[in-house]
Amino acid sequence: MKVIFAGTPEFAAVALQSLHEAGFEIPLVLTQPDRPAGRGMQLQPSAVKQYAVSKGIEVLQPLSLRMDSKDPRRAEEAKAAHQRLLSTPYDVMVVAAYGLILPRSTLDIKPCLNIHGSLLPRWRGAAPIHRAIEAGDTETGITIMEMEEGLDTGPMLLIERVAIEDSDTTGSLHDKLAALGGKMIVEALNKYRHNQLEAVVQPEQGVNYAAKISKEEAALDFTQSAVEIGRKIRAFNPFPGAHGTVNDVHIKLWGAELVDASGPAGKVLSADAQHGIVVACGSGALRLTQLQKPGGKRLPAAEFIKGFPLEGLRFS
């Protein structure tokens, strides 16, 4: 069975590795163009490209797959990519966090299956893992679905659930779901080629849009409840990193736990070795367990306050 794979970040690279190690023939990989990254802003290949190159798999990186793009360069690259797909023998395309919309012209060539990091239709869109934690969901999972032109609206083929633990961050949950997605797509393709998958139409109720995470969302509002703020801290770890502001200094908050305390919203109730860093919220309070000042490293609370005393200050 020949599989063309389309994906970009680590989540997708795990699936690509699973397919490759399971013995599927992968004649071509699509991934987004190299992007500037790091302090030197040097062009960096995606995680998917790195894996594909290491295994000698051909990589294609078009800016767009829309041949009707008004940008001449994007339209030309899309046309070239379309011709490459037409000239490549394959049975199915697998898509995971690709980052580009697949137009009808691509979807019509061969069946396209998507590895989606949520229990559809609960979270459709770009950031289902973040949004599930932020919303306080108790479970999530992976849905293998058939792709159509709508945003994550296609029929579901395979679903597995994963509990969201109180300690889960987007980083830890991402790793669980990436591993599960890799396992499930191998299972799905093995069943697919033997016509053992049943397509189930998504219900119309319970649909939510998981909008892409913006850096502006990372600024915490301590008039919210401790429960809400704690979820945001976990949801925005490792990106973009939730932060609070003390005396005009943005302090990133990487870990927190609920405590039974109260006070004016944002007030640092304690910041010592005995009680830790406790901050009052709109209702309840949080004990901050891991913090980072600008230009510094992530530090446990006890270490952080040695270089940045917080006693009596207030997060605004």
Rank of each mutant, 00 (worst) to 15 (best):
A285V: 07
H82G: 03
G182P: 03
P103S: 02
S105Q: 15
G266E: 06
L313I: 11
E198C: 05
L258C: 10
H116C: 11
V259C: 09
G171R: 11
A280G: 01
E228N: 13
L197C: 01
G307V: 13
F222V: 08
A256S: 15
D272Q: 05
T245Y: 09
L197Y: 01
V246N: 03
K232D: 02
E311T: 04
V95I: 14
H116D: 04
P89K: 14
G295M: 05
I142R: 05
G56C: 04
P62D: 04
E149R: 10
I101A: 07
N114A: 02
V201D: 10
D272S: 03
G244L: 12
S214H: 12
D175P: 00
T31L: 12
E58P: 04
K293N: 00
Q202M: 05
F308C: 10
P203A: 09
G206V: 14
C112Y: 12
A218K: 08
I233G: 03
R314G: 01
G56V: 09
L19S: 02
E204I: 11
R84Q: 15
W254D: 02
A80L: 10
R287I: 11
D108P: 03
V94Q: 05
T140M: 15
A132F: 01
L19R: 03
G56Q: 11
V3Y: 01
E165A: 13
K212I: 12
V259P: 03
H243F: 15
I26W: 06
V94C: 04
M41A: 06
L63V: 04
M67D: 08
I4D: 01
D166W: 08
I26D: 06
R193Y: 11
H174E: 13
P103V: 01
L177Y: 03
P45A: 03
F24R: 02
G206A: 05
V3H: 07
A12T: 00
E148R: 13
G312W: 01
L16K: 00
K215P: 02
V268W: 10
G38T: 13
G141M: 06
E257S: 14
K297I: 10
G307M: 00
I251P: 03
A13G: 11
I277P: 00
L291I: 11
G141F: 12
A211R: 15
H130N: 02
V29W: 07
